[in-house]
Design a binder for these strands. Sequence first.
DNA 1: CCTGGCATTGTAAGCGTTTACATTTTTATT
DNA 2: AATAAAAATGTAAACGCTTACAATGCCAGG
Lengths: 335, 335
Amino acid sequence: MTIYDISQKAGVSIATVSRVINGSDKVKPSTRQKVSDVIEKYGYTPNAFARGMGLQSLHTAGILCADSSDLFLAKAVFYLEQELQANGYESLLCCTGYNLDLKKNYLDLILSKKIDGLILVGSHFIGTTEEENQYIKDGSDRVPIMLLNAAFDYPNVYCTLCDDETTMFETTKSMISGGIRDILYLYNIRSYSGIKKIAGFQRALQSFGIDEPQNYMRYYPYDSSDANRIAAFIEKTAKELHFQGMIAADDLLAVGGIKYAQKHNLIVPKDLSVIGYNNSILTTCCTPELTSVDNRLETLTHQLVQTLLGVLAGEEMPKMSVFSGKLIKRGSTYF
Amino acid sequence: MTIYDISQKAGVSIATVSRVINGSDKVKPSTRQKVSDVIEKYGYTPNAFARGMGLQSLHTAGILCADSSDLFLAKAVFYLEQELQANGYESLLCCTGYNLDLKKNYLDLILSKKIDGLILVGSHFIGTTEEENQYIKDGSDRVPIMLLNAAFDYPNVYCTLCDDETTMFETTKSMISGGIRDILYLYNIRSYSGIKKIAGFQRALQSFGIDEPQNYMRYYPYDSSDANRIAAFIEKTAKELHFQGMIAADDLLAVGGIKYAQKHNLIVPKDLSVIGYNNSILTTCCTPELTSVDNRLETLTHQLVQTLLGVLAGEEMPKMSVFSGKLIKRGSTYF
DNA sequence: CCTGGCATTGTAAGCGTTTACATTTTTATT
DNA sequence: AATAAAAATGTAAACGCTTACAATGCCAGG
């Protein structure tokens, strides 16, 4: 069933059918009705490829992320997909893993014109290497690139993010103000926002005259894991620190901290205060419940998609939209 | 830059370039090299739409699920994407929510020929209504439909699943054998596998002469939630039961059970044994850690994609592949 | 009744590939 | 060296749509 068949049955030309399908041009109401009826009757759906050839678009956005099963990224992907779908766009998902070998995957996606825009979620590679940055520059020639939780100043690149540096600065400050000066900072992915969080943490320490903050920082080098493995890692690498506070770049890492405390009969938060990040579902699964930073993911994804739609519609859009995170206090802290 | 430009620069015809791109036909090695070099040099990428027109395929599979941010579904989506990617297929993600209003979304996807196969993940709608079943029947005329964790006997529909009925039967039996006869069963989504789990639970109770199992079953009616809300639900609807065991259709629901116990000063597992399902990351986040059923998601997704690839290659493939789940014992049970 | 202008519809030329079939080149056989 | 067969390559016709431009139909104004 092609547009030609429909035109035959409706007694019009394929151009008229095309106009009805695309809604745009002026078609006499009675003709429109007649064609619509035939389309409805035969359940005709335009062939996507042929459509794409004419329109050079399939109303599809690419979503690129490291691991869509990560709690945080999964939520981001879901919100993005829903927002895109609500606006008539489909989502091509592309998971790269954490190995930065995404060259082929996403450049091909862009260059083949299969997508109208590319969304990079939790861009762990932005600012990491010049080579990776180059991919973004190349890609942005073809389609707009949207960064979620990363900033990169370049034409046709739009950023939507939480101000993680400030948020982490404030978070750390509130812990120090609560009387805790020995704070273990645990992080894993070296992403743009990860780097900002570290900066905020360090700045807070320095503002209180605590030197050599890197002494308190531990990099957890495993991609995915469970709380016990994280606890064991803390045990192995940070036991000598005698920290009374712990801030993690991610809720799961923080839960690992709580596990660690349990194994050493430390009471959370009396002996150890713990703060996570992302305010995920994990916060209410552990005991005590986890204080965590809400980084406004739903707001961010909404804004990002709206910006993308605006760009695609040819409107002038903000190159950068920044929102503020917020500390949600629960039982793992006493201040 | 089109295939024509490349053919010019390489001094061959477009057909030869096309053959090089598609790797298939016999091309003289020296010619292949020459063309490859030109393609490489100019960074040419074939136009996806035009390609789709010729091939009637873009090497893309549709992944349909209710909510890709759900812990279990997110993992499934990720595994599927990785497996598809490894085999040269891309993934079009489509999240339907739990409202069954997926008609438009996925039928359009199929009918427009944009995808080569459709994967339904955690098919909450299979067998629910005749209307929904009809969509699968209609769709399967066009592309193979792959069901993850659901069974549906129809031409061109292939199923890969965990034997949830038997697995839940065995799980329940082991709890009863441990001396617990008053078992609260908590479930939420009315999916195919959800129905099977219920059946397994009830069969186990009956096999031990425990009548009216539905007295012990509670349906948690909220889409997404957190552990506290689940605990409150149990408090509200099941307090009078005085159950010593709890089995949940999902880990999060089980964590809600642990929360409930904590609020009532019940010791898990002494006063209350809890078993979850899916063996997710949550199992090691709570205290005590959660005994849960591993339903072999990675195996299932692997098998599913391999089956799809086989079908697309025109091979004869099993219509149904069933694997067995396995109980992973942790601290929330004593038996 | 004629004419110009506008609304509507039709015609046909792409869009960039794939691939059946035709043609040319190479290789093997005698 | 001639010839048949096989291999490599080229030609051109789809694929199903969009859209610029052409053609038609219709109306009001003169």
